[in-house]
């Protein structure tokens, strides 16, 4: 039976979240989450790529030769990533200098290839587009949550704006800017999310 839009979104964002349930896309989740602005742009890039590659793979699914389907999927994903990369470089060059290497790595992000192969290649375009959006949003939900912890603790700012009277009462935690800070935050988030979503954890 075809999945409803609601169940697709529920799975992508919560029940089968790519980061804390499937442990995919961890590299960028750790790397770009020390500043919320960087995170938001990275998330926009991933949502765009996941949605558009899912849509394209689904439209072409009956025409793509089976033997070379992975190659075609990579070509489609890489093209959208290059477009995203060029657009971020043009619109936000300073942020691109920081997240640029990770934008390129979206091509190898298992989330996108996984959804193209597991869902889009077997479903019609509309559900595939929704699945891509939902998966991208699920990824973004986790990254934004991590960034919302790391940036205030690490820099004493949110979206680059200082916490009120920061100099009087705030001591920045340097570790939160560095990769270990992301590991700790992601670990705690995964723990909390599993406790909420997996009934076996409660027993």
């Amino acid at each position: 039976m075809a999945e409803t839009s609601k169940s697709i979104f529920e799975k992508g964002i919560w029940a089968e979240n790519p980061v804390y349930r499937q442990v995919l896309g961890i590299c960028s989740a750790l790397a770009v989450t020390n500043m919320l602005t960087n995170t938001l742009l990275m998330c926009a890039g991933v949502i765009f790529t996941t949605a558009m590659s899912n849509l394209t793979v689904s439209i072409l699914r009956n025409y793509i030769p089976t033997r070379i389907r992975m190659m075609v999927q990579v070509l489609i994903i890489a093209s959208f990533v290059m477009m995203v990369d060029i657009m971020i470089r043009a619109a936000a060059p300073d942020i691109h200098r920081f997240i640029g290497p990770y934008v390129g790595l979206i091509i190898t992000n298992c989330i996108i290839m996984g959804r193209a192969e597991a869902f889009a290649s077997q479903n019609r375009p509309w559900p595939s587009l929704l699945d891509g959006l939902a998966t991208g949003l699920g990824y973004s939900f986790v990254l934004i949550a991590i960034a919302l912890v790391r940036e205030p603790l690490g820099f004493g700012t949110i979206l680059g704006y200082s916490l009120p009277a920061k100099d009087l009462w705030w001591q920045s935690w340097t570790i939160m800017i560095m990769p270990p800070g992301a590991f700790f935050t992601l670990g705690l988030l995964t723990w909390w999310a599993r406790a909420k979503t997996d009934p076996s954890v409660k027993e």
């Binding site: 072409l60 025409y63 793509i64 030769p65 089976t66 033997r67 070379i68 190659m71 075609v72 070509l75 489609i76 093209s79 290059m82 477009m83 060029i86 657009m87 470089r89 043009a90």
Partner: peptide
Amino acid sequence: KDSLPYVLGFMLAISAFFGTGVSLVHHST
């Protein structure tokens, strides 16, 4: 779909299509 001419033709067409798309985005920015 799995014959050699189809596979080659498909790859050429899709490469040309997406190559043009990326070039257009690059040119416009």
